[in-house]
């Protein structure tokens, strides 16, 4: 028996919004410790890794490890039927071929349940090695989303250059060139507005705007985003989900032909 309950459906809606542009389907691996999903997009350029800890749920029960392959478009349709403030419960029997998603209004006067067929997905799990990143940047998630959106107008690629002074995002194309520099915040009054850089070595890497923009669909989940970079390894873009877990996106850099 698997049962996981969250106080507000809005969190689950935001999580789904953050992954459904990159993935058509995904396998939710459920265990004692929580729910994990790891999946590459169809082109094998980026990877989504979602972790939801069991202690972040209002109720969590997982008697046996369970892998639930879900069509994320179908799940999005079901979640549209929930009000943001509804409680949401995800339930499945062991070895079941369906999952039940139940919504309850705060006053318990409206209860709805939706059944969805599970899928058997070929899982391509990637082993992600521990990496000492040369630069780790923490910055407001809204600012990162704004920069990615703005620079996508100029080029398909954005160059991220990080030094200890700051981080620079650049793009150039037919329209012209664009450079956006963010300095490290001097005095951190409000942590959620800070730009913080931990640098071992400066790094310059090129990434596809299209994917960065897809990652920023997670912006409603977190006030800050963390970018971890190292020469010749994929970028990690991490959004923490308050008291529940995190979503990490990995993106292979573009390399000179």
């Amino acid at each position: 028996m698997f049962e996981a309950r969250l106080g507000q459906a809005t969190i689950l809606k935001k999580i789904l919004d953050a992954i459904k542009d990159l993935l058509n389907e995904g396998t939710f691996d459920c265990s004692d410790s929580g729910i994990q999903l790891q999946a590459m997009d169809n082109s094998h350029v980026s990877l989504v890794s979602l972790t939801l800890r069991s202690d972040g749920f209002d109720k969590f029960r997982c008697d046996r490890n369970l892998s639930m392959g879900m069509n994320l478009g179908s799940m999005a349709k079901i979640l549209k039927c929930a009000n943001n403030e509804d409680n949401v419960t995800i339930k499945a029997q062991d070895n079941a071929d369906t999952v039940t998603i139940m919504f309850e209004s705060a006053n318990q006067e409206k209860v709805s349940d939706y059944g969805m067929k599970l899928m058997n997905l070929d899982q391509e799990h990637l082993g992600i090695p521990e990496t000492d990143y040369s630069c780790v940047v923490r910055m407001p998630a809204m600012e990162f989303a704004r920069i990615c959106r703005d620079l996508a107008q100029f080029s398909e690629s954005v160059v991220i250059c990080c030094t200890k002074e700051g981080v620079k995002f650049s793009a150039s194309g037919d329209v012209g060139t664009a450079n956006i520099k963010l300095a490290q915040t001097g005095n951190v009054d409000k942590e959620e507005e800070a730009v913080i850089i931990e640098m071992q070595e400066p790094v310059t890497l090129t990434f596809a705007c299209r994917y960065l923009n897809a990652f920023t669909k997670a912006t409603p989940l977190s006030t800050q985003v963390q970018l971890s970079m190292c020469a010749d390894v994929p970028l990690v873009v991490e959004y923490r989900i308050n008291e529940l877990g995190h979503i990490r996106y990995y993106l292979a850099p573009k390399i000179e032909d």
Partner: peptide, 14 residues
């Protein structure tokens, strides 16, 4: 123009 690399160039399938 730079070309897009594949993630599996960096991370191995397990």
């Amino acid at each position: 123009t730079p070309i897009q690399n594949d993630l599996t160039e960096y991370f191995s399938l397990v």
